[in-house]
C-alpha cells in the first residue's frame, strides 16, 4: 500500500514524445477540429511553424501524469493549467510535479495539491496545479 502523499514529494518525471500522431489523435479524441492541430499549412498561415498540441490534450496528459503517480484509486478533483511554448511535432515534453500541500479528511482521504510543469525544447509548455484525492 502506498504511503500517503506529503508536501515536498517530487513526482518522477514523465517524458512524452510529441509526435504528429499524438497531436492529431489528442485533437480528434477531444473533438477539436481547429485546423492548427492537424493541418501544418494552415498552422503556418496563422504564424506557427507547424501544427501544435491542443490544450485539451495537454490537460489530458497532465491528468494522466498525476493519477499514474497516485495510483488506481486516485481521483482528480481539479486541474488548472496555463500554456506557454507550443508543443510541436518532434519535440519531447518532460512533465514534473511537486506536492505542495496535503489535507487529510476525517475518513483518512488525503487531498493533495500538486504543482506541475511540462518543459519542451522551447521552454515551459505548461504550468499548473492539480488537486487529487487519494483514499487511505
Amino acid at each position: 500500500m502506498k504511503a500517503l502523499p506529503q508536501a515536498g514529494d517530487a513526482l518522477p518525471p514523465l517524458e512524452i514524445a510529441v509526435t504528429r500522431t499524438l497531436i492529431v489523435a489528442g485533437a480528434v479524441a477531444s473533438r477539436d477540429y481547429q485546423d492548427v492541430h492537424h493541418d501544418a499549412e494552415a498552422a503556418r498561415e496563422k504564424g506557427s511553424p507547424d501544427v501544435f498540441m491542443n490544450i485539451l490534450t495537454t490537460n489530458g496528459l497532465v491528468g494522466r501524469y498525476v493519477t499514474d503517480h497516485f495510483g488506481p484509486r486516485s481521483v482528480l478533483r481539479a486541474l488548472t493549467i496555463r500554456l506557454g511554448a507550443p508543443n510541436h511535432p518532434g519535440d519531447t515534453m518532460t512533465l514534473t510535479g511537486t506536492v505542495v500541500e496535503v489535507a487529510e479528511g476525517p475518513d483518512g482521504t488525503a487531498t493533495a495539491r500538486v504543482r506541475i510543469a511540462g518543459a519542451n525544447g522551447l521552454g515551459h509548455h505548461v504550468t499548473g496545479t492539480a488537486t487529487v484525492e487519494v483514499p487511505r
Binding site: 499524438l22 489523435a25 489528442g26 480528434v28 479524441a29 477531444s30 490534450t57 489530458g60 496528459l61 491528468g63 494522466r64 493519477t67 499514474d68 488506481p72 484509486r73 481521483v75
Partner: peptide, 15 residues
C-alpha cells in the same frame, strides 16, 4: 469516446 481519449493520452487508469 472515453476509450479513444485514454488511448490518445496513454491513460491506463482502471477507473
Amino acid at each position: 469516446m472515453i476509450r479513444h481519449w485514454c488511448e490518445a493520452m496513454g491513460d491506463a487508469h482502471p477507473a
